[in-house]
Design a protein around this nucleic acid. Structure first.
Lengths: 197, 197
DNA sequence: AAGTGACCGTTAATGAAAATTAGTCACTTT
DNA sequence: AAAGTGACTAATTTTCATTAACGGTCACTT
């Protein structure tokens, strides 16, 4: 069997295992078994468990970058793009088994590698937003501000709106989320008072 | 010694112990010792450890309500009041030893009673904001919205801005926080384009 | 040369014994 | 008799020694 095939075999098996069992509960013995290779073989491709995991994570992050690039349309306005891409990225994150499992692992065991992985994903999203905010600043579409801070606020806002479940009431639907998103980020909450209708 | 004195003695000792050691690490033996009463005496005033804790928590919550009422001026505008009261309340929460200890306890051990206590405090703050938002709605100071959702967003926004530390850069100063607070809640991020200057 | 799995040192799970704790109540003090 | 107490109990938590599982290696096989 060709070297690249074996490598791919290992990667596929590891991806499946990490997504099903999380970081901690995935053992190298198991990956070797699923991949139908000896354990030693894994170590000819990857220095250790963390590097194997990182490569799979990097693949998922590449997917997210592709999603963002595909979803963005330079002819549409800033807030539209922002909301749509953020929605897609977080949907991807929310629905991918690997990230679901990693979230649970952080909650239940606090596994450092799982936490680090989720942080990396968050940073990718933040970096994307920072870039877009800088473009919007150059085009004078938004008021002067620190893109880093605003990117953070926007992400937190989105997360707050999408997890508005815990206390009473069911989570907001997409239209409601979009409405509040626009209210805070674009229009502002204050009623306009000095404009004659 | 009068009954009320003994009760106060117990409360004071318990308050000190909860603030110093947290919920879990405060033992009824220790409270009795500090208060200079037999352990049985505590149980003539409080049914159990949780009720003793609740009474102390309730005291702190009363303090917060007083702070909010004192800080609010009906002649000042809505966002000014909102920001100032929120700032005072969270400063109180941030600087009171009991709440600091309880936060650590939740982080380190996940003690359910500590979590519940912090939730109660958060709810007091949310309820206060909800009330103020309803007033502002009646006065048409803010656009139509669900006060519950907006209260939540505002609290998260404040917390995001005040803990903008982890990733690089030092935390924002009060003026900066106020600036961003105003930017998102009052004015909106979008640059106004259709107004001739 | 490429691939392997038994083996190694370290870390984590297990469970039984020991210690600690919230809450009680028979007894002491006032 | 009313108020106060701390030794006691049942339940929980901590401790610790033993066992099991793990990541990573390397002498050996293919």
């Amino acid at each position: 069997m060709a070297v690249t095939d074996r490598r791919k075999q290992v990667l596929a098996s590891a991806a499946q295992s990490f997504a099903t069992f999380g970081y901690k509960a995935t053992t190298m013995d198991q990956v070797a078994k699923i991949a139908n290779v000896g354990k030693g073989t894994i170590y000819t491709f990857f220095a250790n468990k963390e590097e194997l995991f990182d490569e799979i994570l990097y693949g998922a992050i590449l997917d997210m970058k592709k999603i963002a690039d595909r979803e963005i349309s330079r002819d549409k306005e800033f807030f539209d793009n922002l909301y749509r891409v953020l929605d897609r990225l977080l949907e991807y994150r929310r629905e991918h088994e690997l990230f679901i499992k990693l979230s649970h692992e952080v909650r239940d065991f606090g596994t450092p590698q799982a936490l680090e992985a989720l942080d990396k994903v968050e940073n990718v999203i933040l970096e994307y937003m920072e870039r877009e905010l800088k473009l919007a600043l150059d085009n004078k579409e938004i008021k002067p501000c620190d893109p880093k801070i605003v990117a953070n606020v926007i992400l937190r806002l989105y997360i707050t709106l999408t997890t508005e479940s815990r206390k009473s009431s069911e989570p907001l639907n997409k239209e409601e989320i979009k409405h509040y998103f626009r209210l805070f980020l674009s229009e502002g909450l204050a009623e306009v008072r000095d404009v004659t209708v």
